[in-house]
Computed example of a mutant assay.
Amino acid sequence: MLKSKIKIVAMFIAFAVVSCQTYQSVTRKTSGKNELLDQKDWKIDTLRKDVIWYHYASTTDPEFANQNVNVVSFDPKARLGHAVLAYEKEKDSLSVFTSKIPGLLAGINATYFIEKKDSADYMHLRLKGKDLQQVKVPKSSIYWWKHQGMMTFNNDGTQFDIQFSPEDFATVKSENIITGAPMLIANYKPIGLTFADTSGLNLDLKKLHYEHYLKHQGVRHPRTAISVTEAGKLLLITVDGRNAAAKGMSAKELTKFLVRYFNPKSAMNIDGGGSTMMWIKGQLPNGIVNYPTDNKKFDHYGQRKVETALFIK
C-alpha cells in the first residue's frame, strides 16, 4: 500500500515537472513571437504582413504618462518590401516626399540637416556608395557628438546595423551610411541612460548653447529614432512633444522606453524637435499620424521641410 502511494506521488511530481517545463517552453515561444513586450496602452495595426504600426498613448502610466509615441516595425526577412532613404537638397515636408516615390507604405523624417552653413560638416551621408557629405568638425566643436552613431544598410534596403561611428568613415564598407546621435542602445547596452543625464547637476541648462549635448539631449523634446532588433527588424520611432498631451522625452527617457517595450539590439536618436514626423499611407488628413510642432498647434499640419527621410516600400 505504501509503495503504491509513493509511486502515485512520484508520478504526480513527474507530471507536474513536465507540465511546468512545457508551460515555460510555450510561454517563451509565444513571447518571442511578439516583439512588443507589454501591450498595455498600445494600439496595434498590421499595415502589411511585414509592417506593423504601434501607437502608444497613456495618461496613467507612472513612468510614461502623457506621451504619444508611434513605432513602425519592418521585417525584411518576409521579403515583401524594403527600406528607402530619400535625400532632397532643396528640402520638403514628409508628405511631399511621399508624392515623389511610388509604392511607399510608411516613413519618418531622417537625420540632421547637412545643408546648413554653420554645421554642414558634422554629418556623414553615403547613398549607393557615394559620399554626399563627410564629417569634418574637430572634437572641440560644439557639434562633436552629432555623428556619434551611424546606421549602415545595403542597397537592397533589407539589412541594417546601428553602431558607433568610426574615426574614419572610409573604413566602413557599407554602400549606405547615415549618422545620428546620440546612440541610445549598443549591443543591448542602454548607453543613452548616461549620455546626457542631467540629474543631480547644478547647472542652468538655459544658459548653454542650444547644440550643447546636455541641453539638446538632456531635456524633453519631440524625438525621432531608429532601431534594429535581434531578429533584424527595423523600427521607425517618433515621440511627440511640446504639448500637455505629449510632453516629449529626453534621450534618457527614450532609452528607457525602448528597453521596456522592445528591448532592441541597437537604437540611435536622429533629428527631432520640429522635424519629427511619421507618415502612414492612407491615414487622414494627409498621412501624418504624429503631431508635428512647427505650426505650434496639436494637429497633423505642422510639418517642417527636411532633407532626408526613411521609408518602407
Rank of each mutant, 00 (worst) to 15 (best):
L205C: 05
K281I: 04
G107H: 01
V26R: 14
N176V: 00
F262L: 05
A83W: 00
V69F: 03
G192D: 08
L125V: 13
D41E: 13
K139S: 14
D38S: 13
I177F: 05
G248N: 11
A251K: 02
T59F: 15
R242D: 07
P102D: 04
L37V: 12
I52C: 03
F64Y: 14
Y261A: 00
D156T: 10
L94T: 07
K91H: 08
W279C: 01
V289M: 10
V96Y: 12
L234I: 09
I8L: 15
A231W: 06
E230P: 11
L80C: 11
E307F: 10
H216I: 03
Y213G: 02
A186K: 00
K136R: 10
D41V: 13
F160W: 05
L37D: 10
Y23H: 10
G248Q: 08
E115P: 03
N155H: 11
I142F: 08
Y23L: 14
A110R: 02
A10C: 15
V84W: 00
L127D: 08
M278V: 07
T30E: 15
I226Q: 02
K281V: 04
V69K: 00
V228W: 02
M278T: 06
G241I: 00
I288A: 07
A65T: 05
I191Y: 06
I177R: 00
Y54V: 04
I13H: 14
Y143A: 05
K116S: 12
K296F: 07
K215W: 08
V306I: 09
Q39A: 14
V71R: 03
Q21C: 15
K91A: 09
I13E: 12
V135C: 08
T293V: 14
A181R: 00
A246C: 08
A246N: 02
T255Q: 06
P292G: 08
V135I: 11
G232F: 02
V306K: 00
L236Q: 09
